[in-house]
Design a protein around this nucleic acid. Structure first.
Lengths: 197, 197
DNA sequence: GAAATACTAGAATAATGTTCTAATGTGGTA
DNA sequence: TACCACATTAGAACATTATTCTAGTATTTC
C-alpha cells in the first residue's frame, strides 16, 4: 500500500476509535494512550497528524458538520413549499440523529473547544451553508407563508425542539427515537413558524 | 466567626470563583490552582470539602438546578390557563438565562459528569419537580386545550427553542438577549403545543 | 478540661498530555 | 538506478496538573 493510503487509513482509524471513546466518556476522560492502543498508532504519529487530543476532536467535528450540512441541503432545497421544507428539515434532523447517534451525540455535546484555525474554517462553512438556507427561506417569508422574524431565531424555532429531544434520547432518558417521533416534531415546528391567518 | 460559618463561607467563595472560571474556559481548562489562589483556599481544604474538581462542578450544578426548578414552579403554578402557563414557562426561562448568564451557560454546557451519588440526588429532585409539573399539565390536556403527546415530548416542545436560542446567545452569536425575544419564543411554544381546532 | 472530630496545610505523588530527537521509508529527480 | 528531500513513525523523556497523604490546628461536645 502506498504511503498516502497508509496515512489516510491511519488517520481515519484514529478518528473512528476516538469518536467511540469520546461519545462514550467524553473528550476529557478519554486517554490518549487508549486511542493509541486501539488504533495501533504511535505517539509521534498521532501528534504529527492531529497536533493534540483536541485536534482529533476538531477533525471529527468539522467532518460531522460538513456531512450534516450537505445532506440537509439535499433534503431541503428540492422542497417547493414552506410547509414541506420546514418539515423536511426537522425530519432530516431526526433521521440523522437516529442513524448515527455517536456522531450526533458528539456534535451536540459541545465539548469541543475549537482552535482559531478551526473556528475560521467553520465560520466559512457556516457562511456558505447559511447563504443557501437563506436563499431558500426568503421567498417564503416574502410570500407571507412564514413569519418574519429576526434571522437568528429561525434555527432555534425550527430545530430547537428536535435538538432538545435528541439530547434526551441520546442520554438514554426516553425510549422513542427522534426518528419515531419525527412527524410530531415536524408538525410542531411548522406550527411555530408558519404565519397564522 | 464560628467554624461553621467560616467553612460555609469558604465553600461558597470557592464555588463562586469556580463558576467564574468554569463558565469562562470550561471545567477541563480551569486549573485547580487558580481556584485555590482566587478563593484563598488550601489544597487540603478544597479536597476535604469537594472531593475533587468535578465535585465543585457537581455542587454548582445541583444548586443551580434546585434554584431553577423552584423559581420555575413559582412562575408556573399560579397560572390558570394553558396559554398563560406555557408562556410563563418560556418567559421565565428567558429571564432566568438573561439574568444569570454564567450559571445558565454552565448548566446548559453539559460539561458536568455527575457521580453516582449526585445522579441519585438529581433524579430524586427531578421526580418531585416533574410531579408538580405533571399535576399542572393534566387538566389542560384533559380539557383539550393542550395536545396529548408522549410525556417526554412536552419539555422539548415547550423549552427547546428557548434553550437553543439561549445557547446561541450565551456563545455570543446573537445580540438580542433571550429576555428581549421572550414574547416571540413564548408565542411559538404555545403554537406548537396548543390543540388546534 | 479532655477527647473526639472537623478542618487546614502544603509537600510529595501519580497520572497523563505533549515535546523532542533520532530513525525510517517513499516519491520524485538526475 | 542511485540518491536526496521530506513526510512520517517511533517511543523515551518531559512538563503539567489533579490528587493523595501525613501531620498539625482549632472547635465542639461531653
Amino acid at each position: 500500500m502506498s504511503r498516502k493510503n497508509q496515512t489516510s487509513e491511519l488517520k481515519s482509524r484514529v478518528m473512528e476509535v476516538a469518536l467511540g471513546h469520546f461519545s462514550e466518556v467524553g473528550i476529557e476522560r478519554t486517554n490518549v494512550s487508549n486511542i493509541l492502543n486501539d488504533a495501533g498508532c504511535s505517539v509521534g504519529s498521532l501528534y504529527h497528524h492531529f497536533g493534540n487530543k483536541e485536534g482529533i476532536a476538531e477533525a471529527l467535528f468539522i467532518d460531522g458538520v460538513n456531512q450534516f450540512n450537505s445532506r440537509l441541503l439535499e433534503a431541503l432545497l428540492p422542497r417547493r413549499t414552506a410547509s414541506t421544507g420546514i418539515k423536511a428539515i426537522v425530519t432530516f434532523c431526526c433521521e440523522w440523529v437516529t442513524d448515527q447517534p455517536e456522531l450526533a451525540g458528539f456534535l451536540l455535546s459541545r465539548e469541543v473547544t475549537l482552535s482559531d484555525n478551526a473556528k475560521l474554517e467553520l465560520r466559512q462553512m457556516d457562511r456558505e451553508f447559511g447563504q443557501s438556507i437563506y436563499d431558500w427561506f426568503v421567498p417564503h417569508v416574502k410570500s407571507g407563508a412564514l413569519l418574519e422574524l429576526p434571522t437568528s431565531m429561525y434555527v432555534p424555532l425550527i430545530c430547537g425542539s428536535t435538538l432538545e429531544y435528541s439530547r434526551l434520547w441520546l442520554s438514554g432518558r426516553n425510549s422513542r427515537s427522534p426518528g419515531a417521533v419525527a412527524a410530531i416534531l415536524a408538525e410542531a415546528a411548522w406550527q411555530s413558524v408558519k404565519s397564522s391567518p
